[in-house]
Simulated assay, not measured.
Amino acid sequence: MDKSQVYFTTFKATLNENLLQKLHRLMKTAGFEHIDFHEKYAAIKIHFGEYGNLAFLRPNYARVVADYVKELGGKPFLTDCNTLYVGSRKNALDHLETAYINGFSPYQTGCHVIIGDGLKGTDEEIVPINGEYVKEAKIGQAIMDADVFISLTHFKGHETAGFGGAIKNIGMGCGSRAGKMEQHCDGKPSVDQDNCIGCGACSRICAHDAPVITERKALIDHDKCVGCGRCLAVCPKDVIAADFSDSVAMLNYKMAEYSYAVCKDRPCFHVSLICDVSPNCDCHAENDIPIIPNVGMLASFDPVALDQACADLCNQMPVIDGSELDKNIKEMGHKHHDHFHMTHPDAEWKTCLAHAEKIGLGTRAYELHTI
């Protein structure tokens, strides 16, 4: 496979060009205008940030992408899918409120926000891919309805996947609640019976009679459960959760295959910004200090090459004193060449990119063009 082209620019600005103008020039140079946007719906996949987190991308960057799509005749919207965990983005109403609080209103970004998998995380399209680990991906309906897909990613650390890059943003981020469960485990939730009040909301919403109430406690029959996630959405005490039981490698394999389901058969473009590189995901309701200095902005048609280039650039950066990475290096008494593995020694990211390359999502081989 030929090397993919990845375009890079630093966060250095001049009196004649600010960072927003520089992002526009980066996208133009990378070939954004080769996509036919005329009268096309364009989904811009972004993480709006959990309430309390301040490391997420500023909405100003989303405005650049949305305005560029409109400039080319397209109809952009910002999107993300509801979370599997309990937090400020568990349903579409809370998710939208969080997005607006964090600055992603139509007035700030120039386009509307659509939560990809609907009110309760159950609006999904089944995408057949016949992958090695995923046969049918469950993707948010609004995302699959779009004619063009764009990922706008905050590149940072991640406590399970090693780093949160384009593939994490696409694969896990675009999965419906059932899709997220499938990636994290075998797709079947369980009940914390110590805190269950036996209200029966889960049994009433289930079309397959999987939740059973006995002695005022719910129990989910996994033989009947299809992993739709509706019970998670309606539980008033948030005591139903997925069992995060799969290995890191299995999670990475499934994320790659879900990304393939999102990107196949339509034009896609990918932008990653390496700034405020927090050790953990923006799904946290807090963010620690960055582990490395800001690096720059990258763009490519290939999400695999983009993630590889981002990781390579990050690993060339110095470590910030007092960061989680710095603490781990001092405690372990040595410095590993992989900043993300050193930040979370139980996590790794290379199996994700290797599998993504294997299934044809892209290639890890790239040429980096600095502008």
Rank of each mutant, 00 (worst) to 15 (best):
E159N: 13
M144T: 04
I170M: 11
F149A: 01
F155N: 02
C185N: 15
Q183Y: 02
E136K: 14
I150F: 06
A137C: 07
G175R: 06
M144Y: 03
I167Y: 07
A137M: 05
A178K: 10
Y133A: 14
A161C: 13
G187L: 04
C202R: 10
H184P: 06
I167N: 12
G140N: 12
C185F: 13
M144H: 00
Q193I: 13
Q141W: 09
M144L: 10
T153I: 06
G179C: 05
A161T: 15
L152C: 05
S190I: 15
N195L: 12
A201F: 15
V134G: 09
A166L: 08
S190E: 14
V148S: 01
G157M: 01
I143Q: 01
G171R: 08
G164F: 06
V191P: 03
G140P: 04
I143W: 04
K138E: 14
T160Q: 09
H184C: 07
K188T: 12
R177K: 14
C199Y: 09
S190H: 13
F163E: 00
S151C: 01
A178Q: 11
K156A: 00
R177M: 09
T153H: 01
Q193V: 15
H184G: 10
K180L: 11
H158Q: 11
K168G: 03
P189W: 04
P189L: 14
I167T: 10
I143Y: 02
E132K: 13
Q183M: 13
G157N: 02
C196D: 07
G200K: 05
K138I: 00
G165L: 12
V148G: 08
G131Q: 02
I139H: 01
D147K: 07
D192I: 04
R177Y: 01
V134L: 10
S151V: 04
A201R: 11
V134D: 09
F163L: 06
I167L: 15
A146I: 04
V191I: 14
C199K: 05
G157R: 00
A178R: 01
I139W: 03
V134Q: 04
T153P: 05
K168W: 02
Q193G: 05
H184I: 05
V148R: 00
Q183V: 12
S190N: 11
K135Y: 10
G165C: 05
I170Y: 07
E136S: 06
Q183G: 05
D147A: 13
H154I: 04
A146V: 09
D186R: 12
I170C: 06
M181F: 15
A201W: 08
Q183C: 11
G187C: 05
I129V: 05
K188A: 02
I139Y: 03
A178N: 10
Y133L: 07
M181Y: 13
A161W: 01
V148T: 06
T153N: 02
A146M: 12
Q141C: 02
N169H: 08
A166R: 11
E132A: 14
F155E: 03
K156V: 02
G157P: 00
K156P: 00
A146E: 06
A201P: 00
E132N: 12
R177L: 14
H154G: 04
D186S: 14
I129L: 02
C202A: 12
L152D: 06
H158R: 09
P189F: 03
K138V: 07
M172A: 03
